[in-house]
Amino acid sequence: MTSLKHHPLDQLLAFYRLMVTIREFELRAAGERKAGLVPGFLHACVGQEATAVGACAALNAEDVITSTHRGHGHLIAKGGDPRFMMAELAGKTSGYCGGKGGSLHLADFDLGVLGANGIVAGGIPMAVGAGLAFQMRREPRVALAFFGDGAVNEGAFHEAANLAGLWKLPVIFFCENNLYGEGTPQHKQAPIRDLSLRAAGYGFPGVIVDGNDVVAVYEITLDAVERARKGDGPTFIEAKTYRQRGHYEGDPMIYRTEEEMAYWRARDPILGFRKRLEEEMEVEPAALDAVDAEVKALLDEAVQFAIHSPAPRPEAALEGVYADDHGGRVF
């Protein structure tokens, strides 16, 4: 286990705040889906907050990420505003995509979030392309692709990884191995347990990290970022973690046992980190409770913002397909 003492307390507290924000966002979004504010699919990342926060903390504001169907955490960790996220989930004009995208298509190009994705592995080649652009323009920026353990079995992953390895692109392949793809366990989807082994075939390093240890994730991603910025090419990071909620909200979860879930809840990334902050850094529980309370207030505000934002005019559905519609000749 990594030592917390090597890191400024401010930064550790920022990690804590972000992880709690992600958790609270997911729980509130799930609640609002039940309550009817959120109409569409939701894939919560509860239990995986440390991967998003640790990885994005190692990036600069100019660096970019591509995300997945389980992407709320990635966006928050990259600086996303929970108000605009909740409004998007509610399909409102004030949402990140004006209500046209929903959870699966959240994006904020100003923050370098090139998009969540409805297609498994769909974002990985995009990250490689961003890395290519940075390399061609001699910009010291990196692209990080988040994806799940299920995604490494799509051709898009293999083709993208090979290209990035071949051209030594500043790309980080960040695999959140949460042991399942929908209802099928990882061990029934690939003949290997350590997916980082795949990196060898593309000529770059593959490393494994405890995905529930935010500091460990941060440190290992920093190394990969440094490598990428130096021009040494990609790294595959496999973060071992666990999705605590269903694949989607409403998932009957017939495919896993209560014991297994309890085992992982006992390794909760937020509770574990909180305990270490108290024990190793002597942070007062009251100080952390105060963070929790501030985050709750922030999410209250986000939900209220979503509720009170206007709905788009139905005709807005017809707008925004092209940058140039040739004076109405596209119909």
């Binding site: 209500g99 788009p312 559905a317």
Partner: peptide
């Protein structure tokens, strides 16, 4: 589109 009213439209 995602928004159900837009979708119906």
């Amino acid at each position: 589109p995602y928004n159900p009213d837009l979708e119906r439209f």
